[in-house]
Design a protein around this nucleic acid. Structure first.
Lengths: 338, 338
DNA sequence: TTGAAAGCGCTACCAA
DNA sequence: TTGGTAGCGCTTTCAA
């Protein structure tokens, strides 16, 4: 069934059917109703490929996220993906997944060259990101999740990891903690300029300096065993450490397990705070005091920005920087007095 | 740039370019090389919409997953989605997201009618699922994750939740536990015939009967607070309960917290086992003894089955039922002797 | 081994 | 207010 079939049954031309459905030209109420009736009867929906070819737009946005090489996806990413799909649906857009990592630019290149999507949302951005350069050069509409080193030139939505880590450190300092360790994302991600890891570290150093504290920085692989090993190392390097701030949700269980093994109870002897999905923060016992990452809101905002960009490709780049508050749960307490 | 441009620059016809690229007709080595050179030079990729329209296939598979119930997804779902995208890419297919739940069949109907995808992967299936009926009726190729009540009629890949729960109960029974509670997914999901919750419950009842144990069943909402409340209720209903088996990964943290609050230590006084992603099982302390859900393998197998279906739509439906072993971690131990 | 041309199903322009 | 029709960029049949 196609538009010709509808036109025949409604005794009108194909163009009239097209206009009746799109509303781009006024159609008399009588014919519009007649057409609608036939359409409903047959359950007709315009073929998406034909429509895309003729109209020059696909009504699809590409979601580019890195393949899970070695490391797993994070809970935050899934909530984000779900909310993105929902938000896109509101605008009658679909979402096409692409697992192009920052390394495999060829996959992104294909996505653009084949014109499968009208615009792109780029996850897991780096401070210097080839994919961003590629999109800018191709003059292709896109929004990044996170900021590159030159944030003014592009559209993005992001969480202010620097501010969040600062807030965590301040919270701990207020509780009397003086020697604090930051458990970051893996060394490898820092080396390649992973945005959240870098900005989190900056915020840590800023807060440590501002409050006159002693801070140590520990990259950590994304798994429980590494978290446990890092705790051992932290307590070995400075047994006087009384608190950890973490950006690494995958290692979180390991941190708790390492502390338990070292005989430190949380929050009596030792405090932990971090940045995590609320859902994730509630998995550990005691629940983690954390800045709650608003994954769903990020998805919605990303779609909003991309839609604005598609409507006005020449407009000034817009951004949203979110800094959710720290939710106090059970993992932080006053520094032990002994 | 389009195929005509390539043809002009290579001094051949458009059809020759098409055949040279697809390999569906032999092309002399000389012209093939000439064409390839021009293609490489310009970075030409055929327009996906035009190709889909002409060829009658989109090279895209639809991934239908429900909108976030209670605003979040499970970790298992994300790993699955990622692996699906990767597996599809191997076959040169892209993945289009659709958040059509079992309730909103109209969204699925649109996906099919618009012919945006060649086939569909359906997540979160119910024993009786309208979407399955709809796909069968439309004679549209699809694979479900999980089995309906009539599993022989369709293609599916699934985890044998019944066998996994049975294995957990057997493990606990071997450790001497006699009074065991099952913490299931939410009541609401059971009521609508959610497959994994039902099959898990069946396996539980089977194992309890076979081993002559006392078993109680507790549906539980997908959050920590509900998990904590369920533990209270379990210990209130039967203080002699010494072990829990759970299918509810979101409530897992709450189960631990409830036990701690009740003064039961794991695994000394009380054991927990369950079905979870390895990654997730390692978040709690002690780490959860659990049947490891092979999310990535499920994704790969789903794509394999769908590809087979697309190649031979009339072939007999194939299935894969996975029953991963229970990984012993720290959350189960012998029943307390006092 | 190659080319010409007829679609695929739509949109949107030009006429009426 | 409507109809006719020329594309959109590709695939594939038919002819050479």
């Amino acid at each position: 069934m196609n538009i010709g079939e509808i036109a025949r049954r409604a005794n009108v031309s194909r163009s009239t059917v097209s206009y009746a459905l799109s509303g781009k030209r006024s159609v008399s109420e009588a014919t519009r109703r007649k057409i609608q009736q036939v359409v409903d009867e047959l359950g007709y929906q315009p073929n998406a490929s034909a429509r895309a070819l003729a109209a020059g737009r696909t009504s699809t946005i590409g979601l580019v996220f890195p393949p899970a090489v070695g490391h797993h996806y994070t809970a935050m990413q899934l909530d984000f993906i779900g909310s993105l799909a929902d938000a896109a649906a509101v605008h009658e857009y679909d979402v096409l997944l692409s697992t192009a990592g920052p390394d495999s630019t060829s996959s992104l290149r294909r996505l653009l060259a084949e014109r499968r999507v009208d615009g792109v949302v780029l996850m897991e951005v780096r401070l210097a990101d080839e994919r961003v350069d590629q999109l800018l050069e191709a003059d292709f509409p896109f929004v990044t999740i996170g900021r590159t080193a030159a944030p003014d030139r592009t559209c993005w939505v992001g969480v202010d990891h620097g501010a969040l880590v600062t807030a965590c450190v301040d919270h701990l300092a207020d509780l009397g903690h003086r020697r604090i360790a930051l458990v970051n994302r893996p060394e490898r991600l820092l080396r390649i300029g992973y945005e959240s890891a870098h900005r989190g570290l900056e915020g840590f150093e800023r807060a440590i300096a501002a409050r006159g504290l002693t801070g140590r920085h520990y990259p950590c692989d994304d798994d429980a065993a590494s978290g446990q090993a890092r705790v051992e190392q932290i307590l070995h390097d400075d047994p006087g450490t009384t608190a950890i701030v973490t950006l690494n949700e995958a290692a979180l269980g390991g941190l708790y397990q390492g502390l338990a093994r070292a005989g430190r109870s949380v929050p009596g002897d030792f405090s932990i705070a971090g940045v995590a999905l609320p859902h994730w923060a509630q998995m550990v016992s005691p629940q983690l005091t954390a800045a709650d990452v608003p994954a769903a809101e990020l998805g919605r905002l990303a779609v909003d920005l991309l839609m604005a960009r598609l409507a006005d490709p020449a407009g000034a780049p817009r951004h949203h920087l979110l800094a959710p508050p720290v939710s106090l749960r059970g993992s932080t307490g006053p520094v032990p007095t002994c």
